[in-house]
Computed example of a mutant assay.
Amino acid sequence: MSEQWVETTLGEVADWSAGGTPKATNRSFYDGGDVPWAIISDIQNGPLRETAKCITPAGLDAIGGAKKVVPEGAVLVSMYGSVGRSAIARTPMATNQAIARGVVGTQVSPEYLFLWINAHEGQLDQMARGATQRNINKQIITAFPIVLPPAPVQERIVEIIGAVDDHIAALDAEVGALQGVYRAATSLLWGTAEGDEAAPQLLGNVMHLDVVRTPMEAGTTYRLAGVLNAGKGLVDKDEFDGADTEYAAMNILRENQVVMRKLTAWEGPITVVPAGFDGFVASNEFPTFTLADDIAPGWMKHVCRTPRLWAEMQSRVVGTVQRRKRLNPDQLLLVALPVPSRREQEQAAEALDAIEGQVAVIRAEATRLRKARAGLLSGLLDRTIDIESAELEV
C-alpha cells in the first residue's frame, strides 16, 4: 500500500489524563443519581460491559485511590492484573458517565487504538512489573509503541475486524439462547408420556454405592480426574506416579457410573463418567455409584446438571465450616426425584443431547473465528495481509 504508516508511541497519540478526576464538590459527571462504577473485572478485552454495579456519590468519595471520569470513546487499560493477562476495554461513543481507573483517552480512532493494544497485549505484559501481580504505570503505557496508519486505513481495519466481531457476537448470542432452551427443556427429565411429572423415587432405589479401590504403587502411572461443579462433567488432571501421592489407595472411575465430590457438594459436583474417563482415579472424596438397569446413563447425566438436584444436595450437607461441609453417599441416596420410565428417560436425554450438540457446533465455530480474527488482526496491523483482499473475504 502507498499510504504512509507512522511509528510512534501511545504517549504521542493518546492523553493519559483524559476525563479528569471526579471531585467531591463537582457532580457534573452525573445527573444526580448513583454513579456507574467500573472495576477491573468489568474490563474484559472488549466493550466495557454494561453493569448493574453503581455507587452513591458518598460511596465514591469514600473509595481510596485514583479515579477518572471516562470520556466518550475512551480506551481503558487496567494498571493491575494477573501476569499474562491484560485487561483492556473500550467505552461506547455515547457514554461518558462511568468512573474507572487508568484511562487512556485518544486523539486517534479509539477503535483502532483499542485493536492495536489488544493485538499487542503480550508485549504489554512483558513491559509490566511484578512476579505475580501485573503492574503498569504511566511511563510504561505512554512509551508503548504503536504504528499509526492514515485515518482512512484505520477505519477500514476497524470495519473488517468489526464485521468478524459481529459474527462472533451473533454466535455467542445463539449459544446463550440455546442454553436457555436447554434449561427450559430439562423439565422433560421429570415428565411422563402423558405430560405429568413422574412419581418420585429415592436415588437409593435407582443407584447404589459401588466403590472399587486400587493401591497406589511406585512405578505405576495413574490418571487423575476431577469433578466440575454444576454437573459439567470431569476434568483430566494429568498423569502421576503412584509414588507421588500421599494416598495409599484411590477410587477407580468406571464408565456410566455416577461420581460426586463430597466436599462443597452444594455446588453440584456430580456427573456420569463418560467412556473417555473409564479407569481414571480419584481420592476417597469422590464416591462412585452404579445405576440400576432401568436407569439410562444419558438421562442421569442431564439430571446431574439440574439445579433441582443441586438444591437437594445442598439441603443435606453437614458440617459447621461452609467450605468444609460435606455430603456423604448415604445422604445423597436419600434424595427423592421424579423418575420416568427408561423409554421416557431416553427420549428426554435424546432431546437434550440434540440441543447440546448444536451448542457444541456453534461454540466450535466461534472458537475458530476468534482464532482467525487474531491472525487477521495481526496480519492487517503488520501489513502482511492486504486490506483489499481481507475486505473481499469478510
Rank of each mutant, 00 (worst) to 15 (best):
E3Y: 07
E12N: 15
S17F: 11
S17Y: 10
P22I: 05
N26G: 07
F29N: 06
F29G: 04
A38T: 05
E50M: 12
T51K: 05
C54H: 12
A58G: 14
A66E: 12
A66Y: 11
A98W: 11
G105I: 00
Q107A: 04
A119F: 05
M127L: 13
Q133K: 09
P149R: 08
P149N: 08
I161L: 00
G162F: 00
G162M: 01
V164N: 01
D165Q: 03
E174H: 14
Q179E: 12
G180E: 15
G180P: 07
T186R: 06
L188M: 11
G204P: 05
V211D: 10
P215R: 10
A225W: 07
L234A: 04
D241K: 08
D241N: 13
D244A: 15
E246P: 12
M250Q: 12
I252K: 07
L253D: 02
R254T: 12
N256Y: 06
N256P: 02
V259C: 04
A275G: 05
V281S: 08
P297R: 04
C304D: 02
P307A: 09
A311H: 14
A311E: 14
M313V: 05
G319Y: 03
K325H: 01
L332H: 05
L334H: 11
L334M: 14
E350A: 12
G357M: 06
A360S: 10
A364H: 10
A366N: 03
D386P: 05
A390N: 00
E391F: 04
V394P: 02
